[in-house]
Design a protein around this nucleic acid. Structure first.
Length: 638
RNA sequence: GCCCUUGUAGCUCAGCGGUAGAGCACUCCCUUGGUAAGGGAGAGGUCUCGGAUUCAAAUUCCGACGAGGGCACCA
């Protein structure tokens, strides 16, 4: 006689074990029809499984977040159902739900093409329209094993091996197709309607490139057709912000076939780069950093000492001269230790902060390259803080604030923070790792920030905090970072004299705010959709002549503006003003100045903002004032 | 690096066995026009590269290189 408590507090007693479906039916037919699954004492539960004890029950429909996830998960099974009908020899591996969709990893000798994707989608459409019931079999591990042995589903068998012996395993029967899942799943395919298979990709069994290659089919699914269409439109719109597309359209940068992964900055892009660099320079000055510059190519012996040669040899570009081998530097830290080592250092010199806009080369795998986001040559806004153990906490804390201050300037509202701890392959004792990880954890916890732990993902020399941002398609890119390193100073003999006149090794903090200029500008292009605030805009103002009579005035104003240090251009072509405005607008120039006879009479210019706002007529001193104010704001919305 | 896709004028793309086409941009001419496209003419490509098939290849096949989407990697 289970007593069921519903979310509104009402209770219902049933004569015999009852399913969520039946509970919903007892409330109303409409609800019963919409029921996808439920929660029994806060645990997700299939709609058609019996509940034989008193419980709190929540009914889940497609309107719930869990509901839509269940729908997506069930669609993954439908890939299985369809694909096995079309290609009986394949083996199903794993098919989870992801953000806004699902995928299924499949082992198949035959390689799927986009045409197959269409076929599979058609087959799924056919299957869901039959509105079949999804049946649940709860079986022992032994029975499950037998089922998948008969079906030669070797990957499912491997998954079963890792499941504990006791307890039941849920098998979901989609007609002749059987899949294994923790569930729950929809009770009938009539809940599955609005989906689209999106893309095909390779993957590896258990995410390990040593294992079998699998083929992954990605899809998305939604409760309503409108939601599906909105999602697809959203992706389309987001693609328009792609920094590679905008970079080309606005002549910011390009990448040539001869140097994959390396950036040719055009005048427009380089302007942004320099403004950004000067902004960081100001920040460094205010925060007591000293800028240095170190060589591009350094003898391999230094990299052997630092440990990089051992671990990253294949990922470094090398060159040789006479009898020596050099590595084109993949990082700046060993060089910074060299600079630190010049002259004897006292504890009074610490913390010593050495910064460099360091150009690094890393031979990234070809498949990893991605516009400005992942390149083979990048410039870090790098710095190394040499300090004592006692100073770590403060330095890390100050740095986190600094990152937030800088990111705020660009209006990032979502900064993803992750703490990565000791990897398997590492240098340094466990005692040192304990201390380093503790320092970072405490710095984060003292700030009341949301952060995520990534065990085993730290650098080989120390743990790190990463600050990541999302691009237009929600892909996450690490930008800022701070890493604690007790090892490098020891390996490279960095020392200072302490209060007791004894030599000690300093601790080294590796840190970057933007990460690399390339990646950060890539993110910025997408963030602003290339509509840069005036302090960053490659061209800040363009002066348009209305007739040829106004050409000289345009040129004169332009010269004054440029001498004053603003980035001004003219458009004195023989075109109508509407045409020039259109071009300047498409060119994303923040301020447009129009000069006709009327303006010339009063030695002024008519101003228009990028969004079309009329800013009135202004003489030069007022124009300077206006631009100065806009620059000062740096596009911050406050 | 792995799997799928892909590489034609500066850009976006069409052509998919009979030695190249559009729109925009560019140059010149007419037009001197007041806040998102005035009109006309012209120039521009050994169709990424290397092989193979064929009387004939941008078009089919193989390979290399680059690019796109994922996966793996990311000091």
């Amino acid at each position: 006689m289970p007593e069921i408590t519903l979310p509104d507090g009402s209770r219902k007693v049933f004569e015999k074990p009852v399913t969520i479906q039946e509970i919903a039916q007892s409330i109303g037919t409409g609800l019963a029809k919409a029921t996808i699954a439920g929660k029994v004492n806060d645990v997700l539960f299939d709609a058609t499984l019996p509940i034989n004890h008193d419980a709190k029950v929540v009914i889940i429909t497609s309107g719930d977040k869990e509901g839509i996830e269940i729908i997506r998960h069930s669609f993954a099974h439908l890939i299985g159902h369809a694909v096995k009908q079309l290609y009986p020899n394949i083996k199903m591996a794993i098919g989870p739900v992801i953000e806004e969709g699902f995928y299924y990893d499949i082992f198949s000798e035959y390689r799927f093409t986009p045409e197959d994707l269409i076929k599979i989608e058609e087959r799924i459409n056919k299957l869901i329209k039959t509105n079949y019931d999804v049946k649940i079999l709860q079986v022992s591990k032994k029975e499950a094993t037998k089922t998948f042995q008969e079906r030669d589903e070797t990957f499912k068998l491997r998954i079963i091996e890792d499941i504990p012996d006791e307890g039941l395993i849920n098998l979901y029967k989609h007609e002749e197709y059987i899949d294994m899942c923790r569930g729950p799943h929809v009770p009938n395919t009539r809940h599955l309607r609005h989906f689209k298979l999106l893309k095909l990709s390779g993957s590896y069994w258990r995410g390990n490139s040593e294992n079998e290659s699998l083929q992954r089919i990605y899809g998305t699914a939604w409760a309503k057709e409108k939601e599906l269409n909105d999602y697809l439109t959203r992706i389309e719109e987001a693609e328009k912000r792609d920094h590679r597309k905008l970079g080309k359209n606005h002549s910011l940068f390009y990448i040539s076939e001869e140097s994959p992964g390396m950036i040719f900055w055009q005048p427009n892009g380089w302007t942004i780069y320099q403004v950004l660099m000067n902004y960081i320079r100001e920040i460094l000055k205010k925060n007591d950093y000293q800028e240095i510059r170190t060589p591009q190519a350094v003898d391999k012996s230094l990299w052997e000492k630092s440990g990089h040669w051992d671990k990253f040899r294949d990922d470094m570009f090398t060159t040789s001269s006479e009898n020596r081998t050099y590595a084109i530097k993949p990082m700046n830290c060993p060089c910074h230790v060299q600079v630190f080592n010049q002259g004897l250092k006292s504890y009074k010199d610490l913390p010593l902060r050495l910064a460099e806009f360091g150009s690094c080369h890393r031979n990234e795998p070809s498949g990893a390259l991605h516009g400005l986001m992942r390149v083979r040559n990048f410039t870090q806004d790098d710095a190394h803080i040499f300090c004592t153990e006692e100073q770590i906490q403060d330095e890390v804390s100050t740095f986190i604030d600094l990152v937030f201050e800088v990111y705020k300037t660009f209006g990032f509202d979502e900064i993803i923070i992750k703490l990565s701890t000791r990897p398997e392959k590492r240098v340094g004792s466990d005692d040192i790792w304990d201390k380093s990880e503790k320092a970072l954890t405490e710095a984060l916890n003292n700030k009341d920030l949301k952060w995520e732990l990534q065990p085993g993902e730290g650098a080989f020399y120390g743990p790190k905090i990463e600050f990541s941002l999302r691009d237009c398609l929600n892909r996450i890119w690490q930008c800022g970072t701070i890493q604690v390193d007790f090892s490098m100073p020891i390996r490279l003999d960095a020392t200072y004299v302490d209060l007791n006149n004894e030599k000690r090794n300093p601790v080294m903090l590796h840190r970057a705010i933007l990460g690399s200029f390339e990646r950060f500008i890539g993110i910025l292009i997408e963030q602003y959709e290339a509509k840069f605030p005036i302090w960053l805009a490659p061209t800040q103002i363009i002066l348009l002549s209305i007739t040829d009579r106004n050409i000289e005035k345009c040129k004169e104003f332009n010269q004054f503006l440029n001498i004053k240090g603003y980035r001004s251009k003219v458009d004195i072509r023989n075109e109508k003003v509407g045409y020039k405005i259109r071009e300047a607008t498409i060119g994303r120039i923040p301020l447009i100045g129009v000069i006709g006879d009327k303006e010339e009479e009063v030695d002024s210019v008519s101003l228009r903002a990028l969004d079309g706002t009329d800013l009135g007529i202004s003489n030069l001193p007022n124009l300077y004032k206006l631009i100065d104010e806009l620059i000062k704001k740096k596009g911050r919305i406050e």
